[in-house]
């Protein structure tokens, strides 16, 4: 367990340091304020200023997801191109834990994304958002961030095993944003579609984040928080197992640099 945590910590620290100097990371933040302004203009125009917090939550989650998929797609392949993959696999640290740590480090992007959304809403549209349940909001944001990194780990495994699946990187975000109700709660969907959406951790996270910003009391907060984490953990289990299997096969066949 200590070894796993150490690998996680190493990955997290490395990625956090890289994030600070990565231009690409900052580029991925540009969409947050624009999406906030667009969505906020829509709810304001239609006289539903009470939905302003929705227009801040959605861009934050969208930026997080887009960044997660970007890192999931690039991380292992960059390690391979840079000649680091063989060294990392040969080292005694757990590769999945290291990868998960790195993805969690990359998810620190959520912080400036949320800040930019809040600022865009306040400065451009004069809609200052109040966080009515700050503790729950922070806990939910953390849970969503960790679950996003966990899901990204599963995707990075998929991208390594099937490079053609990279098309998923471009295709998946929009259907996921619709299905998980990052902007429009899935309770508005037909029953069967809502049931599909409930399978995604993001739908639980988006609902809970919106509720944490609203003044009303939040129902079943602990249970819903647990659902976000449980669905994220499922992603991590699948991703971790797939990566371990892939590495074992690549090592036994000597094909690590070719896959």
């Amino acid at each position: 367990m200590t070894a796993l945590l150490r690998a996680f910590g190493l990955g997290f620290g490395f990625q956090a340091r890289e994030l600070a100097v990565s231009t690409n990371a900052y580029f991925s933040l540009v969409s947050a304020p624009f999406f906030t302004i667009t969505l906020l203009s829509m709810v304001t125009y239609s006289g539903r200023g009470d939905l302003a917090s929705y227009a801040v939550v959605a861009p934050t989650l969208m930026t997080l997801w887009l960044a997660a998929l970007m890192y999931a797609g690039e991380m292992i392949s960059e390690d391979r191109e840079g000649g680091r993959l063989e060294l990392l696999v040969a080292s005694p640290v757990s590769f999945p834990a290291l990868l998960f740590g790195r993805l969690c480090g990359a998810m620190l992007l959520a912080l400036p994304a949320f800040g930019l959304s809040i600022l865009a809403a306040g400065l451009v549209m004069d809609a200052w958002i109040t966080i009515h349940h700050p503790v729950l909001f922070v806990l939910t944001a953390l849970a969503v961030t960790v679950s996003t990194a966990a899901t990204a780990a599963a995707f990075s495994a998929l991208f390594v095993l099937a490079p053609s699946a990279r098309i998923v990187q471009n295709t998946l975000p929009m259907p996921v944003f619709v299905l998980s109700g990052v902007m429009v709660p899935i309770t508005l969907f037909p029953g069967w579609l809502e049931a599909v959406g409930r399978l995604l951790y993001l739908s639980w996270g988006a609902d809970l984040m919106r509720d944490a910003l609203a003044p009303e009391a939040v129902e079943h907060a602990a249970l819903r928080l647990l659902m976000v984490l449980a669905l994220g953990a499922l992603g991590l289990l699948i991703g971790g197992a797939t990566i371990v299997r892939f590495l074992r096969r690549a090592r036994s066949e000597g094909t690590l640099s070719q896959v």
């Binding site: 969505l39 829509m42 709810v43 239609s46 006289g47 539903r48 939905l51 929705y54 098309i167 998923v168 471009n170 295709t171 998946l172 975000p173 929009m174 259907p175 944003f177 619709v178 902007m183 429009v184 709660p185 508005l188």
Partner: peptide, 20 residues
């Protein structure tokens, strides 16, 4: 993949109309 992604983009924004 591509066309479905773009159609989902349209649906994403259209749902805001449903929301309001």
């Amino acid at each position: 993949a591509w066309l479905v992604r773009l159609l989902c983009q349209v649906v994403f924004f259209a749902l805001v109309g449903v929301l309001v």
